[in-house]
Amino acid sequence: MIWIEGVLVSEGAGGVYGERILQGYRVWDPYRSKLAAMYYLGAGPELRPDQTVLYLGAANGTTVSHVADYTSVVYAVEYAPRPMQDLLEVARRRKNIVPIMADATRPMEYAPLMESVDLVYQDVAQPGQVSIALNNAVFLKPGGNLVLVLKTRSIDVSRSPPDILAEAEEALRSGGLQVRQSVWLTPYHQDHAALICARD
């Protein structure tokens, strides 16, 4: 990971979403990217050039573009047509992004397009976030990592976010993943937590 004077950046062609350029590098804004926020908080597995990534909830490709700057291949899954249009444009400019229009709750639909990956990153605002993570863990290589961005208010607005986090941790463990670390993404994103998991 590349830091310049305490600022997280990535190396790649700029102008994807109007991002700031610092000494020729693209600034990776933690207020716009929950993955960047996780790194600012000192958590999570670092991205490497030899990694393949499955990105669930790719949206318009803002964070995907930074992940692609660091890694070998990014399989970017998005279900909504409008963000997919933006994602396709991002993928056109970066040859290592594979855009997949599919429902992350149905991984077998895009399994034929996949290979085993080193990292599954999930940022999907749906109630069944944990089950989505567990169902897509099938693509993880042994020793691979899964990062689940838990959007607690998308699960249940009436319950305490810490209770939802504890429940999610237990469900992930029961599903066969090791929960190595959990971190709230405050002050960058309220009521969001990143759960960093590993598969043996």
Rank of each mutant, 00 (worst) to 15 (best):
N145E: 11
L22D: 03
H189G: 11
Y121R: 00
G18V: 14
S174L: 15
Y55Q: 07
P81C: 01
R106I: 07
V117N: 06
V130M: 03
S10G: 08
R180C: 11
E5R: 14
A37R: 15
V124T: 08
L87C: 02
M101W: 02
G61R: 10
E167I: 00
V149H: 13
P45E: 06
M1E: 07
D123L: 06
Y25K: 14
G176K: 10
Q126S: 05
D156E: 15
A13P: 14
M114V: 04
R199S: 07
L87G: 02
G61M: 07
I2D: 14
G143N: 09
L140V: 06
Y25T: 04
E5V: 03
M101E: 13
V179H: 01
V53D: 10
Q129T: 02
L87V: 02
A198H: 04
E115N: 05
V7G: 01
R82M: 09
S174G: 05
G44L: 14
Q190F: 11
L146G: 09
V90L: 10
V64P: 00
G175F: 08
V124E: 06
A13I: 07
K151T: 06
Y75E: 05
L47S: 07
A198T: 12
R48M: 12
K141H: 10
E78K: 13
N136M: 06
L41I: 14
I155D: 01
A91E: 10
L146F: 02
L134S: 05
V149A: 10
S182H: 10
P112Y: 06
S160L: 13
P112I: 11
G12K: 05
V16W: 00
S154I: 00
L195F: 07
P127L: 02
S72M: 10
Q23S: 14
V53R: 05
L56C: 09
L54W: 11
V53H: 07
P107C: 10
K95V: 08
P112N: 13
L35P: 01
R199I: 14
D69I: 06
Q129P: 03
M38F: 02
E169Q: 10
I100S: 00
D50F: 09
N96G: 13
L88T: 12
V117T: 06
P142T: 12
V147W: 10
Y79P: 00
G42V: 12
D29I: 11
A125N: 14
H192I: 02
D191V: 09
R106G: 03
A111K: 09
V73T: 15
L56K: 09
P45Y: 03
I2H: 08
R173Y: 00
L148S: 04
D103L: 02
N145F: 06
L22K: 12
L8S: 00
Q181L: 13
A91P: 10
K95G: 12
I100D: 08
L195G: 02
P142M: 02
I97L: 08
E109Q: 09
M38C: 15
L177V: 02
E19R: 00
R173K: 14
P162V: 07
V27G: 04
G57Y: 04
I2K: 13
S65G: 12
P99K: 09
S10V: 01
L185G: 13
V124S: 09
S72V: 04
S116F: 01
V16C: 11
A68V: 04
V64Q: 01
S116I: 03
Y25N: 13
A36M: 12
N135D: 12
R106E: 15
H189E: 15
E11N: 11
